[in-house]
Design a protein around this nucleic acid. Structure first.
Length: 627
RNA sequence: GCCCCUGUAGCUCAGUGGAGAGAGCAAAGGAUUCCUAAUCCUUGGGCCGCAGGUUCGAUUCCUGCCAGGGGCGCCA
């Protein structure tokens, strides 16, 4: 099985070798005793001809040492002392001055030992060192159903939470409900007006309706058909739901608004659950107010002299104190507090609860809002750099090449629920995570819906299912885990080496994606891994072929025929039919060398499946055993 | 006017301070006696928006310009 493989340790080891080599050069006087600051980074070269790992340190130092990079690289290569027992086979200077390292044949294969041992934990890291991170995302106002843009935020936030979670962070997910203020009143007014328009006669509620103040549909009211549903559902409310007739119009609107908001919120919760997104806490603006935290935070800002009364309103002095564009209103001249005021209270609560990092996922239309929130956080004495904001760019929804309009107000929008119903949860999530969050996304409904090869999500899922199928077929043949042994030295095909290298890189990819808060790197990685696997599968057999077995049983001329069969399998030709020690029943049916190769390749395929599953898990996409 | 995002193949987009710049789609043609053809192979296709700068080296970093999208409220 070989020793545990860890690419990070290996990279460190190589960097150390290079530093030692430079020290040796200094000792023999070939390079100055005083070296400028330099960094040694070990990378996976793009092309396999350039070795297994590469270093560009010669380029970095060449200028300072007044030496051509290539020449310096050659010197460093000569100074490097390789441990004959270690993983490295040789090092050479290449190109304009690269140091290319070649590993011994078996080294990449040993990554399978690690994957098989760690299984679902492969890719996990302790990057976060237990730091607590809060991710606040979606947080759509409960004034209408979630639309496609919210879906993108949900997919990004949820997979980012998974990504950070496997990277050693303690993650907490929150949805902030803006259920105070004008929008909710507008919702209430819209619903109540529709109710009066449609359900006045014969709804059995004549007495209540007679007692209710007349409400006209607002000019900027909500137009969607869900408003009609909400109005219709009012007829099912019990008598004590309705405010007493003599109460003011505002109270009626507020009561209906609260009802409608709760109802819409329930719909949002259901949609998100169907989308596979679960929050640790739903916190409402109304709660923040009720707890007194808004007044508290305003008092604190007042005490620190960050507030100013002017033109009848109370302002946060963000311009002079924090170089913001202008001061911002916290309390309107009407006495109402702004959204910003309660948001400051909410953000203070986030820090006060002890989160080390706070991530907000907002629509890109909020970008102008970020500086003032940072300013407020600073004003309260918290480190603003611990707040990271990911902006989600707009989703451009296309159907048959034509853009689909998405405006909550006009009522012509595609909801997240409709999207999931049409293309499925997995395809929707994959497409949302296909691109950088802050780049515009074209979402082609027709493509996402297609259960066809040009649809990338099925391509990746199929690779996973295909391995399951191979394993099932192997089981039918009597070959199943655990294997008596597997000789990873047999995985010598270039295609196999590529797959092994790619899987060895996976933990690094996960860690870097977590560091950058960018889950979209995983989709590209999975597509590439799946592609390499599909090609490998197509060109090479994993399981013993029937033909071989027939030849084996017939007992004549098998060698030449078997070798002829595997002509394009360079690895197989090298196989010696050596005896293997295990006395397993199944081995009577197969030629021993072939069985060993099958074990190795099954381990490879199984590991590919483990990695694909892990990647899909992080993205929140299912990994089917059968398709 | 100021701010954010984007500009890479016909289309949609990855990617990288380094070694002939990648994928999918689209177009054309091909591949299955045995592990799923939801797969694979072949073929074309590129001033990496433009111009400077930093660098041994820029598609990548910086500046300016051009183009597209978005934001600049006592809305949320």
């Amino acid at each position: 099985m070989g020793s545990q493989f860890d690419l990070e340790i290996l990279r460190e080891k190589i960097a150390g070798l290079i530093r030692d080599a430079l020290a040796r050069g200094q000792a023999e006087g070939s390079i100055p005793a005083e070296l400028p600051e330099y960094e040694v980074t070990i990378e996976l070269p793009r092309r396999s001809e350039f070795g297994d790992l590469a270093c560009n340190v010669a380029f970095r130092l060449a200028g300072k040492l007044r030496m051509p990079p290539r020449k310096l690289a050659e010197k460093i290569a000569a100074w490097i002392e390789l441990d004959p027992e270690g993983e490295l086979d040789r090092v050479e200077a290449a190109g304009g001055g690269f140091l290319n390292f070649l590993l011994k044949k078996r080294v990449w294969g040993s990554v399978l030992g690690r994957i098989q041992k760690e299984r679902g934990a492969y890719g996990d890291s302790s990057l976060g060192a237990g730091q607590r991170v809060m991710i606040e995302f979606v947080s759509a106002n409960p004034t209408g159903p979630l639309h496609v843009g919210h879906g993108r935020g949900a997919a990004v936030g949820d997979s980012l939470a998974n990504l950070l979670s496997v990277s050693g962070f303690q993650v907490w997910k929150e949805y902030y409900i803006n259920n105070v203020g004008r929008q909710i009143n507008l919702l209430g007014q819209s619903v109540l007006a529709r109710f009066q328009e449609r359900f006045y006669p014969g709804s059995g509620l004549d007495e209540i309706i007679n007692g209710m103040p007349a409400v006209e549909f607002p000019a900027d009211g909500y137009q969607g058909s869900y408003i009609l549903d909400l109005a219709r559902n009012l007829t099912k409310q019990p008598a004590d739901f309705w405010p007493p007739p003599e109460r003011a119009r505002e109270e009626w609107i507020r009561a209906i608004g609260v009802y409608a908001g709760q109802s819409v919120l329930q719909g949002i919760k259901d949609d998100l659950e169907r989308f596979g997104v679960v929050f640790d806490r739903w916190v409402s603006e109304e709660e923040i107010y009720r707890s007194g935290k808004v007044d508290q935070v305003l008092a604190e800002l007042e005490k620190k002299d960050y507030l100013e009364k002017r033109e009848g309103a109370t302002w946060f002095k963000s311009k002079d104190a924090f170089g913001e564009e202008k001061d911002r209103v916290l309390i309107r001249s009407t006495g109402e507090k702004t959204y910003f005021a309660s948001d400051i209270a909410y953000h203070r609560e986030k820090f006060a609860r002890g989160f080390d990092q706070i991530v907000n996922i907002w629509g890109s239309d909020h970008h102008g809002y970020i500086p003032r929130v940072r300013a407020a956080i600073q004003a309260l004495g918290y480190p603003a750099e611990n707040l990271k904001v990911i902006l989600i760019q707009f989703v451009n929804l296309l159907r048959a090449g034509k853009p689909v309009s998405m405006s909550t107000r006009s009522g012509e929008f595609i909801t997240l629920a409709e999207l999931v119903a049409e293309v499925g949860r997995d395809a929707a999530r994959f497409f949302f995570l296909f691109r950088k969050a802050d780049s515009h996304l074209d979402f082609d409904l027709e493509l996402a819906k297609k259960q066809a090869p040009e649809n990338p999500v099925y391509y990746v899922q199929y690779a996973h299912a295909r391995v399951a199928s191979i394993r099932e077929e192997a089981r039918r043949m009597g070959i199943s885990f655990p294997f008596p042994e597997w000789d990873l030295g047999l995985l010598t095909l270039p295609e196999e080496q590529v797959l092994l290298r790619q899987m060895a890189w996976f933990p690094n990819l996960v860690r870097e994606s977590a560091r950058a808060l960018e889950p979209h790197h995983l989709t590209a990685y999975l597509l590439e891994l799946a592609g390499n696997f599909h090609r490998y599968y197509h060109d090479h057999r994993v399981l013993p072929s029937k033909k071989t077995r027939e030849v084996q049983r017939s007992g004549e001329g098998q060698r030449s025929k078997v070798e002829g069969q595997s002509q394009n399998d360079r690895g197989e030709k090298d196989l010696e039919p050596e005896k293997i020690s295990n006395q397993d029943e199944r081995e009577r049916n197969f030629e021993p060398g072939e069985l060993k190769l099958t074990y190795a390749r099954l381990a490879l395929c199984d590991s590919i499946q483990v990695v694909i599953k892990k990647g899909l898990d992080i993205l929140g996409i299912q990994a089917p055993e059968k398709m």
